[in-house]
Write a protein that binds this DNA or RNA. Structure first.
Lengths: 230, 230
DNA sequence: TGGCGAGGAATGGCCGACAAACTGCAGGGA
DNA sequence: TCCCTGCAGTTTGTCGGCCATTCCTCGCCA
């Protein structure tokens, strides 16, 4: 389960719960691209005040998931195909750096985590559980980012990661997911061999192949390409 | 002038003005590292309500300039030397990517901007105007990021850039600033030759040399290294 | 003497309300 | 017919206030 209607989780601030709720709705496509999110309306729907909603929207704007124009409100950011490519391109460098840094310092525990994430993903693919697969996929890369020991890498990664989720949600059946798994396997192998250079190169190639998928495999994404090119 | 006491600028939201004000105070060192920023106190000082202050703090937290703990308030983030190194390392990849992408598509206007930023920086160095120099420095790199045509590069860059300013503020007289200028010159030349590979390599080397400055040149920063190394 | 719990002050989180700003539309004049 | 102007509805940005939690101090008890 990801999230139903319930919001409160323990003593966590309301705004954080709302942020997660909105993120879920966005990456799952409940909110259409470009759709407007009205603070007061959402507040009424959730039976809370405007303030926490406002804060959640600000956080999402900082992540780039929504766009806020002064005095004109927030709307779900529709990443153009170009932007998703842009993000993948940056990810190719970030993930390569992460892999290079992580390789020599991977603990046995972390390797175990990576193997688990990888087999989770394999299982999800066989079960055709694409949502679960995106989560496992994100997890795989997140572990590497964390194990890089570089806080800036972690932060940048977590900012860019939601875009990847949007991608897979949009293109799920079209993309050759088995290829992603194989690439992950290659990265995993290189990391276990503590071959930093190879791991970095494979991580980079992986993201670049994701980038290129936006052209070839996905008709669904292409329709977003509305004059964003110069 | 950067900002005095006045806050309002045109019809811009209050929170944005406050954000700039706080950023100024932080990078200029008016707020000590780790110092607490109390919402109600600041609101009273500026004779406004809590809400815009709160929002500004949230924005700064998203940038990593302050740290907010739930129910425990905000404090100025003190980047450890390790973290500044981390950021520089990420920047080395981001800036290299930016330079590589920008090289083949640089317009004449953009090149002119770059030359201007470079000579501004030179002038500031001669005038020993270190604050102006940080601004010109930031500008130089920002132009390249913008001209990369990759929105994700731009966004990530703008998130990481304030850390660099902290760096120079902290280390101003200690670092061999002339070296930075020479490196900028090298990047500029490569860009004008539209040599993407060379520009990228020089941009990367530039940031890595910044990273290494945290060890050699600055005693002021070293005191922050409190067990953050593993 | 030292640890521990009660009590008070400080402060963040959330609320409900309101004014200013923006949007869209209708009506009048060129 | 087209553009400018005024009006009404909607929504943001800001306000002031209240409650709950956290932090700190002080007195109690072992």
């Amino acid at each position: 389960m990801s999230s139903e209607t319930g919001i409160a989780i323990g003593s966590e601030p309301l705004s954080a719960s709302i942020k997660r709720l909105l993120l879920d709705r966005i990456v799952n496509g409940d909110y259409g691209p470009g759709e407007r999110i009205v603070e007061s309306r959402l507040a009424k729907e959730l039976e809370i005040s405007q303030s926490p909603v406002r804060e959640a929207l600000r956080d999402l704007a900082a992540m780039g998931m929504v766009e806020i124009e002064s005095r004109r409100g927030a709307r779900v950011r529709q990443p153009t195909a170009k932007e998703l490519r842009d993000v993948s391109e940056v990810r190719s460098e970030i993930d390569a750096l992460a892999a290079r840094l992580a390789a020599p310092r991977l603990s046995a525990d972390a390797m175990e985590e990576l193997r688990t994430a990888h087999s989770d993903m394999t299982a999800c693919l066989e079960a055709k559980d694409y949502v679960g697969m995106t989560e496992a996929d994100a997890n795989f890369h997140r572990i590497i980012a964390r194990e890089s020991g570089n806080e800036a890498v972690e932060r940048v990664f977590s900012q860019l990661e939601p875009f990847a989720r949007t991608f897979i949600t949009l293109t799920s059946p079209d993309v050759e997911l088995g290829g992603i798994l194989r690439q992950h396997g290659g990265i995993l192998d290189a990391l276990m061999d503590k071959d930093a250079g190879l791991a970095a190169e494979r991580a980079r190639a992986h993201q670049l192949s994701v980038r290129d998928a936006f052209f070839d495999d996905s008709g669904a994404v292409e329709e977003f390409l509305n004059g964003s090119d110069h």
